[in-house]
Amino acid sequence: MRNNILLLIILCFLGILFITGIFLSEKQYNSISIIHRFKAPSTEFLFGTDAYGRDIFLRTSKALFNTINYALLASIIAIFIGFLLGLIAGYSGGIIDFVIQTLIDVMMSFPSFFLILTIIAAMPQNGWNVIIAIVLSTWPNIAKITRAEILTLKNREFILASSTIGASFIRIVFYHIVPNCINSLIITGIFSFGGAILTESSLSFLKLGINEDIPTLGNLISGGRDVLRSWWISTFPGIVLFLLIFSVNLVGERIREFFDPKN
């Protein structure tokens, strides 16, 4: 119970930051001021200022908004592709299943982070490279879970019955398969969202991710790497990033407990 209150407080805090982030204009979070360089946190600047005198509180709130957007887009695409490939593999079987399953195994057994780094380095740095990298590292997991679900569903009587009475493939998928595996899909989706946030920030931290002009949580943390004595520059965006990942994981856990028939 106490955990839930904690989660609610964190979510409220993140929600306020997120909503602030929506309405911030570029002039507010990007205004450079030489006088206010490296100011420690105070009542004027809640989280302090960075090397260009920009307000880290405003930048963090915009960064939270940007990070969530990128991660959400990437994980939605990953879920779509993963679900589609898992569905095709599980439903068709045979050689197609073998090919997709081998692809999944290869992707899961190789440290994909290295592959991601090379892909990112080969592409122009415009934000889409990060999304493609996240999608590539996330889809195998989703496809694997979907495939396992489809395999147990495929031979059940109600699927057989509906295909016997002439239901089309699309109808079977949307009316019988999706509602039956939506639970595990939602849970995997939430954890993939958490993973996407982490991957995006890690890449931005390594200066390989989103362009440095656009504030994301990884970019802000990376900004404090060369000026360690100004500890606030990377501390506060990092705390927000941690709270974000923590709350996403906790929500995922709660939903899993909720769907678990044992409870």
């Binding site: 955990n3 958490g194 982490l198 920030s201 890690s202 931290f205 943390i221 404090g224 790497r225 360690l228 004595r229 500890w231 990377s234 501390t235 990092g238 990033l241 941690f242 990942i245 923590f246 994981n249 906790l250 856990e253």
Partner: peptide, 26 residues
């Protein structure tokens, strides 16, 4: 359980940077 859940959610690169700041600078 709570502590491991917190550890589970900490981004490693940020933890590293904070430890560098704390133990190496401050």
């Amino acid at each position: 359980t709570i502590i491991t859940f917190i550890f589970y959610s900490i981004p490693a690169f940020w933890l590293g940077l904070i430890l560098v700041i704390l133990l190496g600078v401050i």
